Simulated scan of single mutants.
Amino acid sequence: MRIRIFLFVMAAIAISACATSKEVYLADGSKGHSISCDGAVQNFGSCLEKAGELCGARGYVVLNQNGEAVPFSTASGGYTASSLAASGGFQAQSGTIITRRIFVKCK
């Protein structure tokens, strides 16, 4: 079970290690990009770097940026209360999910 949790954590770190983008239509009808740089190993600089890759030498304008830290906790076990104490078969995790997103328009 610990190996499964370790692999899950490593996969989450690998996925969160790169900014992702999606082309969107802005309020004025023009095209823009929604760029997500979630996770503890990134920052808004990762989002801005992705914007630079997308827009190139033309440059870009940041229209909006937001981010938040959302606490979470999970528990698993499937045992009764009396068997938990005897077997130690209960697992719990808690932490924070960090989300960051910017909206940019290429010049």
Rank of each mutant, 00 (worst) to 15 (best):
G78D: 01
S46R: 09
G29N: 07
F44E: 13
F6R: 12
G67D: 00
T74R: 09
A57P: 10
N64G: 14
S34P: 02
L84F: 08
G88F: 04
T74S: 09
T20L: 11
P71Q: 13
L26Q: 07
L54N: 01
S76E: 14
R2L: 07
S36N: 07
C55I: 04
K107T: 11
Q91D: 07
R4Q: 08
S16C: 13
R100N: 11
A85W: 01
L7P: 08
C106P: 03
M10G: 04
K107Q: 12
G59A: 05
K22S: 13
C37H: 00
C47F: 07
M1G: 14
Y25P: 03
G95R: 07
I102F: 01
E23Y: 07
Q65K: 11
A85V: 02
F44N: 10
L48H: 06
V61P: 00
G88D: 08
P71K: 10
E23M: 08
S83W: 10
G52A: 13
F72H: 09
A86W: 00
K105A: 08
G29L: 00
T74L: 05
R100M: 05
G52D: 08
F72P: 12
C18K: 11
I97P: 00
L63V: 12
F103K: 09
R58W: 09
Y79K: 04
I15N: 05
N66A: 12
A12W: 05
D38F: 00
V70C: 07
M10V: 15
R58E: 08
Q91W: 02
V61Q: 13
K105I: 08
A19R: 11
V24G: 03
V9E: 13
R4S: 10
Q42D: 13
R58G: 14
F72K: 12
A14M: 10
I102C: 01
Q93H: 08
C106Q: 07
L26V: 03
L26N: 00
E53D: 15
G39Q: 09
D28N: 15
C18E: 04
G78L: 06
G56S: 06
G77N: 01
A51M: 05
K105E: 08
N43I: 03
I97Q: 12
G39S: 01
S21D: 11
K107L: 13
F90T: 04
R2H: 02
R58V: 02
A69V: 11
G29R: 05
Q65I: 02
L84Q: 05
S73T: 12
R100I: 01
Y60L: 04
R2W: 04
T96V: 15
G29M: 05
Q65G: 10
I5D: 07
P71G: 06
I13W: 05
G77C: 08
G45H: 03
S46G: 14
